[in-house]
Amino acid sequence: MSAALLAPEADDDRPLLTVSGLTKYYGERPGCLDVGFDLHPGEVLAIVGESGSGKSTLLSLLACRLAPTRGTIRYRMRNGAMRDVMSLTEAERRLLMRTDWGFVHQDAAQGLRMRVSAGANVGERLMALGQRHYGDIRAQAKDWLQRVEIDTDRIDDPPRSFSGGMRQRLQIARNLVTAPRLVLMDEPTGGLDVSVQARLLDLLRGLVADLGLAVVIVTHDLAVARLVSHRLMVMRQGSVIETGLTDQVLDDPREPYTQLLVSSVLQV
């Protein structure tokens, strides 16, 4: 199954997401300058850079949380049509965001409803899509809790009672339950213990491969980028300064800044 989904053939030869000339100015100050890339189904693109490099601005633009000054974000809808997401109506865009797209926040509390149970957190998108069978919704929630390695006994507990790693896994389940095709992730392992990070990354890798997800992951952690991404974009001062295969950029960095970034990582 995974191989079939991963194999970039036929329909998958067309990009899922095409970003071009994406630019955002905060007043005079550029947040993101002329960023463009294609993303295909099954591809994981990591965006790395320091704080203030523009990577978070870029992710906010992609998630339509911020209006760009210039540029377009085109997405291949499930019916095959490429649509400029900025030109979608608000209703269409919100529907897209909660069905075909996912967003994993660094702080799980932002991506979860902390006061309602884990099961309801996972089931919310299903109910938003009109599912009205409690038993079915609960069965799907259980299935997803298992897939993200959360004990199904915890289905009725609120995420407040969960550890940081569990919350993050719950957030992922909540996003993936509608089988989205594109998932945006903002430092999904930030703030987690190293051992918890490894487990989460491993889980992510498996899910991405099994589901053939396209992922844009923002991280400042090059080890995370190496472990989960196929391609890498290095950002600095709002611009993409280097891009390529992840292992190529990390093992043979060209730009002075990238060399600095790579050489600053502690080797273990």
Binding site: D38, H40, E43, H230, R231, T243, G244, L245
Partner: peptide, 10 residues
């Protein structure tokens, strides 16, 4: 292209 390389390696 990176995409082509990923396929070639696969």
């Amino acid at each position: 292209s990176p995409r082509r390389m990923i396929r070639l390696r696969r």
